Amino acid sequence: MLYEGVLNKMQTEFNTPIEYYLVFKNNFININQIIDRDIKIDFTGYECLNCGQHKKIFRQGFCYECFYSSAQVGDWIMRPELSKAHLGIEDRDLEYETKVQIQPHIVYLAVASDVKVGVTRKTQVPTRWIDQGASKAIEIVEVPNRYLAGITEVALKDMFTDKTNWRKMLQNEVLETNLEEIRNSLKDKLPDEVKPYFDQTNSAIFNLDYPVLQFPKKITSLNLDKTPSYQGKLKGVKGQYLLFEDGTVFNIRTYEGYMVNIEVI
């Protein structure tokens, strides 16, 4: 079976285990169904996810020009505290920014390696945690816009990491911790304008199970620019990574906008 298309982050379905789909323009692969089979990946070119032109990808699936002009990759994406749409202030495109920023957001704790604090839109729960490879997660507070979520994350950053140790995550080295107890200790540390939302927020713990037959002991990252052709036996999926029997891991998110042929052998 041969599949051709442009890489974009895998779509997921919250299940036990999580279902993964690699979706192309004209077809898709249910990744769970090809675990324990050999697959061959060939890099064939670039296609910007924004403008569709065959330009070299700069970051996040965008060419250089689109990365510095599109509202989809403004600074407020990575730093929610910079959001200004609630004030009617434009960064790159106020209509788009209003649609994305002024909607319910969740500040959460997740454990993929260590305890991490993060922000996501409510509509992205639990997708955001799946993409990070979290084993479990809990909501700290739900707020009505991205700015309030951002200042909450900033207030808590000194207590927790805001990044995932991806190597530990892929090797399933996950810190044992009581997320509910940690969450309950945070109310007094929230910004004053956020505290009223704490008791209204769902505090159930999400547990996430990934389709992995074998976790890698020693990790080698597949770099399509240096190794444009690779073949290996797929042993699992976690986060946005494909895990292979020889210890090779392939981060789909890193190579968004790359055109590939994928053959299932």
Rank of each mutant, 00 (worst) to 15 (best):
N27S: 12
I182W: 01
E95M: 06
Y147T: 10
V174Q: 11
I182L: 07
E90T: 05
S69P: 07
D199C: 08
P126A: 02
L175G: 12
M78H: 11
T44N: 02
D158E: 11
K157T: 14
V174Y: 00
M159E: 15
T98D: 10
K238V: 04
A137Q: 01
H54T: 11
T254S: 10
V249Q: 06
E19Y: 14
L208W: 01
K56I: 13
K238P: 02
E173A: 11
H105R: 08
A112L: 01
M159Y: 12
R59H: 13
L186S: 02
K56P: 15
F206E: 13
Y21W: 10
P144M: 05
L224Q: 04
F244H: 07
S113Q: 03
L156Q: 02
Q33R: 13
G236K: 07
I89M: 07
V264N: 05
T248M: 08
E65L: 08
I106H: 09
T127K: 13
F28I: 14
G61H: 00
T248D: 12
I102E: 08
Y3Q: 01
I57A: 04
D42W: 08
E245M: 03
R92G: 00
N27I: 12
G247N: 03
N32G: 12
S221P: 13
I29S: 05
A155K: 05
L224Y: 01
V264Y: 00
V119K: 00
L7R: 04
S113V: 03
T220P: 04
Y108A: 06
N50R: 11
G236C: 02
E4A: 15
V154I: 14
P211N: 13
A85K: 00
M259V: 06
I205N: 06
K238T: 05
V6S: 01
N145K: 00
T227I: 03
V6T: 03
N178P: 11
L109F: 02
R146D: 15
V212S: 09
T220K: 14
Q132R: 07
D199K: 05
F160H: 03
E19T: 14
E180C: 08
Y255L: 01
G236I: 02
I262C: 00
V143T: 00
L208T: 05
N8Q: 15
T98F: 01
V23H: 10
V260H: 05
A85M: 03
E181Y: 13
L208V: 03
V6L: 00
K235E: 11
Y241S: 09
K40Y: 05
D162F: 00
L234Y: 02
D192Y: 15
I39N: 15
V154Y: 03
A134V: 04
N223F: 01
V194D: 09
V111H: 02
D42Q: 12
A110N: 08
P211A: 14
Q33T: 15
V100T: 13
T254M: 15
P17S: 06
L82Q: 09
G239E: 04
